[in-house]
């Protein structure tokens, strides 16, 4: 059924004649805090804060980056240790952290100094991610308090991963994997990848992990089963070096690191709705979907715990 919506999107252009921009009154805007926080095994918590914008608000780079806010008090606790996170801003970044900060905010490292963009994190390892623990987040901002919790669940490794050429092609194919899902428990998964074979610049082809088109899945259909499945190459779409017949595929000889993370059910619900909204935005066949946050107090966003495992795939027959 979930395949039906993309299908209807595909066929609809055959039927309608045109679309045009209109200016129409959309009531109901209310400024809200957006919390984008995550923690994963062996890593510190990282929290970004921003404010929601009116649908007709300016959308240039300045407006986008100025939606991030600072001056909040952010606390993370694992039940036994409680730490107030440090506010680290782009205009006073520790040396060597520019690339990471640029990736976090999605802007070139050269632009960082032009903006006052802040993230909240800590070097105190007592609240870094550990499997099996629950992490509590508290954000105090402008007199309001927002709280949330997330769990780092026990990870599940892939049984195997392999590559095989698609159709008649001999050099392009999807990444395949086999997973043995654990029976009688809820299992939610997140799939990310990066290619580590060296590019012409002498660097690994991808510096960071990238999510696939629909990176989250759970075991509603396959609880306790072992089966093979495939995923596309999400980096290929914007990679000018990959010809059209190779879009979506890995090339023979690619080396791919697969990062498979486990998530709890509440988090899966958030991401399922989030990707449903991204994929169905503008589709009249879809229900307008507000994404169900796991944060109390009236904020948008998510506080997410991940427990990743890694697997390296060499794309050979």
């Amino acid at each position: 059924m979930k395949k039906l919506l993309p299908l209807l999107i595909l066929i609809f252009p055959f039927l309608f004649s045109c679309s045009k921009e209109v200016k129409i009154d959309i009531p109901g805007y209310e400024e809200q805090l957006c919390i984008d926080g995550s923690i994963e095994t062996g890593m510190p918590p990282i929290v970004l804060l921003s404010k929601s914008q009116d649908i007709y608000a300016p959308t240039n780079l300045d407006a986008f980056l100025n939606s991030f806010i600072s001056g909040a008090t952010v606390t993370v606790s694992n039940g036994s240790s409680t730490v107030v996170l440090d506010e680290i801003c782009t205009d006073n970044l520790p040396a060597g952290s520019e690339e990471l900060a640029a990736q976090l905010f999605g802007i070139p490292a050269t632009e960082l100094a032009n903006y006052h963009l802040c993230a909240y994190t800590t070097l105190n390892t007592s609240v870094w991610g550990e499997v099996g623990k629950t992490y509590y987040l508290t954000v105090n901002f402008e007199g309001k308090t927002y709280t949330s919790s997330t769990q780092i669940v026990t990870p599940t490794n892939l049984t195997s991963s392999f590559w095989k050429p698609d159709g008649n092609s001999t050099e392009w194919g999807y990444s395949w994997a086999s997973i043995a899902d654990q029976a009688n428990q809820y299992d939610g998964y997140k799939w990310e990848v990066k290619r580590i074979n060296i590019g012409i610049d002498g660097q690994p082809r991808d510096a960071f992990f990238t999510k696939t088109y629909n990176p989250f899945f759970d075991d509603a259909f396959f609880d306790g089963l072992t089966f093979d499945f495939f995923y596309e190459n999400p980096m290929s779409w914007d990679d000018p070096a990959i010809p059209s017949e190779g879009k979506g595929f890995y090339h023979l000889g690619d080396s791919v690191v697969i990062k498979l993370s486990k998530v709890d059910e509440k988090l899966f619900n958030y991401y399922e709705k989030k990707f449903a909204q991204i994929q169905t935005a503008g589709n009249p066949f879809a229900t307008p979907t507000n994404i169900p946050t796991n944060i109390t107090g009236g904020a948008l966003g998510v506080w997410a715990g991940f427990s990743p495992t890694y697997d390296t795939l060499y794309c050979v027959q």
């Binding site: 649908i55 909204q277 948008l300």
Partner: peptide, 14 residues
């Protein structure tokens, strides 16, 4: 009626 950003994804709030 509004938009916000999470993990660099533009999201809408109805």
């Amino acid at each position: 009626s509004s938009w916000y950003v999470q993990e660099q994804n533009l999201l809408f709030n109805y």
